[in-house]
Design a protein around this nucleic acid. Sequence first.
DNA 1: TTGAAAGCGCTACCAT
DNA 2: ATGGTAGCGCTTTCAA
Lengths: 325, 325
Amino acid sequence: MPTIKDVAREAGVSVATVSRVLNDTGYVGTDTRKKVMKAIAQLNYSPNEVARSLYKRESRLIGLLLPDITNPFFPQLARGVEDELSRSGFRLLLGNSDENTEKELDYIQTFVQNNVVGIISATNHVDYQIYNELKLPLVLLDRTSKEFPAVYADGREGGRLAARTLIDKGAERITLVKGPAHVKPAQDRYIGALEELSRTDVDFSVLSTTSYSFEEAKGWAEELFEKFPNTDGVIASNDIVGIAILHEALKLGKRIPEELQIIGYDDIPQSSLSYPTLSTIRQPAYEMGREAAQLLINIIRKEKGIEQTVQMPVELIERNTTRKD
Amino acid sequence: MPTIKDVAREAGVSVATVSRVLNDTGYVGTDTRKKVMKAIAQLNYSPNEVARSLYKRESRLIGLLLPDITNPFFPQLARGVEDELSRSGFRLLLGNSDENTEKELDYIQTFVQNNVVGIISATNHVDYQIYNELKLPLVLLDRTSKEFPAVYADGREGGRLAARTLIDKGAERITLVKGPAHVKPAQDRYIGALEELSRTDVDFSVLSTTSYSFEEAKGWAEELFEKFPNTDGVIASNDIVGIAILHEALKLGKRIPEELQIIGYDDIPQSSLSYPTLSTIRQPAYEMGREAAQLLINIIRKEKGIEQTVQMPVELIERNTTRKD
DNA sequence: TTGAAAGCGCTACCAT
DNA sequence: ATGGTAGCGCTTTCAA
């Protein structure tokens, strides 16, 4: 790889001059600039970001910490972040935490070690010391916080909306599936649904689950019908378990949505590909990713008057696992 | 952030000594080491990777270029890569190319600018000049090549296997869905299926599609049944379009698998959550990711006698969209 | 308008 | 066993 020195030699100028044309700072004579440009092209030179980063004490890198990219909700987020970031020339350092403290701290540390200019994190542990000691901009994604800027969807309202929908559509023996206790958004929607359910006179049961994963979704679905065979309305903890429940119900011969209504959460892409298509509460994942990226960039650029926390709207997507009224 | 100088001062030694204990190279007296360790702990110091990278001309970063993390096949790959890489202390710089030349070149360039030690790429364009000029290890993932080390699944055989399965199970009017022409693996499985189909006397039709995406999958499914309403066996280009076709068929009242058999490709996690569950050709995505990472690490470490190209087996996963014979 | 040189934080060589 | 120091490739004063 050619260095700035090579370019300087080739162009017959000093490295300082090359640097000036590279960064478009300070005075550079028109023909000198031309010579330098030519040399750059000739050598196919591009500046070493690492050297830059060392001097400036900041890179063009941003750290993104996600629980698990393998969960279909997160690729959307990640893509939103990346698309927005790359428009401003930033690149992504990616880590999966698996909701595991050690991995999480480890990633945050290497983000710092690599001079990232900012971090976007979907952590359940803003309370970790490391976040408070962080000298760089942090934006929480898919999570709330009073202490840090955050982009999230209104989980409480989403939970309420899901419950209300099922109640309005005549479900009388509702089962509420509670997601993992340590996952904040899962709790929020659960609380919201609980709130709404409690305001009315429907009977309901709660099924506690401890994971969101594909592998286990089927198990939860089976457990649900063993424990609550007569339920006629399920509020799923997310779309994956919603779909698992849906298909388990079909296997048991239940008519959907006549005998059993199901509502999911997230609106992951494959929800419109289930059979029947899954009614769900939509979180605008891609847009959330973009918002988070934008917010972070604004903070980095020290723009004035930026919202520190943006709450995205959730939305009922009526498809075919709920009645048409 | 404290620097090595701060540690040196705190410990009352020279930076050289600190560096030695940091890297565990050269002689360091037992008590000197202890003093240094203490200073490191006290200051909560961790070395600046950027400075390291600049001096050594290589980082602990690896670039991963994927077509689109939003396609459910890729998160698995990415996760495999990450898990394996992080075991050796490497971190991931991630980029989505969207099969778009400009983005692809851009990412490769910034990978280089950031001193990555190696690149894993799922590109359809190994022929790009930039890959040949690359001074660093490159491993192709989900792609074949004679010129570069590669990890891929046997798409030809997968296509054959899919076709043979449908033929063996009595399908007589097969529809072969052809994926996007510019996507290599899509072509491979198509050719394989074509090969097998041609060896026998079944009738078949080909439906050409130009994308893999969720949004368009439904459209392809509708088009399929408009054009070939009497088909009794579909070889889908991947699981997403397989599932879309499956559910469209259900909507049309077709009995699966009695009237219509469907076989997908990839075995993405949600395929076992479709209704009925989708029979498919499995590519071991997660393992492929790990293999690629391992291969790259071996190349970086200049291990002797490593396989330059590893072909992973594909496998028929019989679920409920094909007959039990 | 241009160049010389210091310095970003680290490693590795050469002395001692 | 330890320290001094050059240098990785770049940006940015400061002087000319």
